[in-house]
């Protein structure tokens, strides 16, 4: 994929239009995009706005512009800056939902396997693997400096001597570091059914085909138990 000077992937105008139409066809779009006073109250309350060049006001304005190029401009890095906290929706005087619009755009990006989606979701492959293998989202052994830089300067210390630290926790634990709690196989099987019905497996197949293969092996194993 080629990129312009703003880091936005270069595609044809027809493709930009197609993506914008797909967003507008989403059943939530009409509810999320109403009018916009350009007041900036959403952006004022938006946590990432303090750190990045990202603004829910611009999300709404770009949508209202009806210009597919402006909407496409958000599909790469931009949509992934949002925390999905929905502060914007809580305070917008027009009852818009910029965070909801972001969710719609992200879903398109994931469904279509865009590069930005693949890149952003990469770190989550460990979580997905853990989830499908053990029904746990996070376990102590996943705490590693490379993956949790946002935990601050103490992450190095936090990730050392895990078995010992586990023992020091003054409440019953499983005394292992690869599990937080035990999940029954029945629950796991139900989880797979939900994943199947909700299209989660299909998404994984698009975004990370090799992860999909590993996960399918695990699913088959558990199901045949």
């Amino acid at each position: 994929m080629e990129y312009d000077e703003n880091g936005v992937s270069i595609v044809s105008n027809d493709f930009k239009k197609e993506i914008f139409e797909e967003a507008k066809k989403d059943f939530r779009y009409e509810e999320y995009v109403r009018g916009c006073l350009n007041c900036g109250v959403c952006t004022g309350g938006c946590p990432p706005h303090r750190f990045f060049d990202f603004s829910p006001r611009m999300v709404l304005q770009n949508c209202k512009s009806n210009d597919p190029a402006l909407v496409w401009g958000m599909m790469d890095e931009y949509v992934w800056a949002c925390f999905q906290c929905f502060t914007c929706a809580m305070i917008c005087p027009f009852l818009n939902n910029p965070g909801g619009v972001i969710a719609i755009l992200r879903e398109i990006s994931v469904r279509r396997g865009f590069e930005s989606a693949k890149k952003v979701l990469k770190p989550y492959s460990r979580v997905l693997l853990k989830l499908t293998a053990y029904g746990n989202q996070l376990s102590p052994d996943m705490i590693q400096p490379d993956f949790f830089p946002d935990w601050g300067p103490h992450i190095g210390y936090a990730s050392e001597d895990l078995p010992l630290k586990r023992k020091a926790i003054p409440m019953p634990t499983l005394q292992v570091t690869n599990l937080a709690w035990d999940v029954a196989p029945e629950a796991m099987k139900e989880l797979y059914t939900i994943f199947e019905e909700a299209g989660v497996f299909k998404i994984i197949e698009v975004v990370d085909p090799s992860l999909y293969e590993i996960i399918q092996d695990i699913v088959d194993d558990v199901r045949s138990e």
Partner: peptide, 19 residues
């Protein structure tokens, strides 16, 4: 720009946060 939040600030001030 419309103010999104008002919180307490240092030295007996109130902070207006917005865009």
């Amino acid at each position: 720009g419309r103010v999104a939040e008002i919180t307490s600030g240092p030295d007996n001030t109130v902070i207006c946060k917005g865009e």
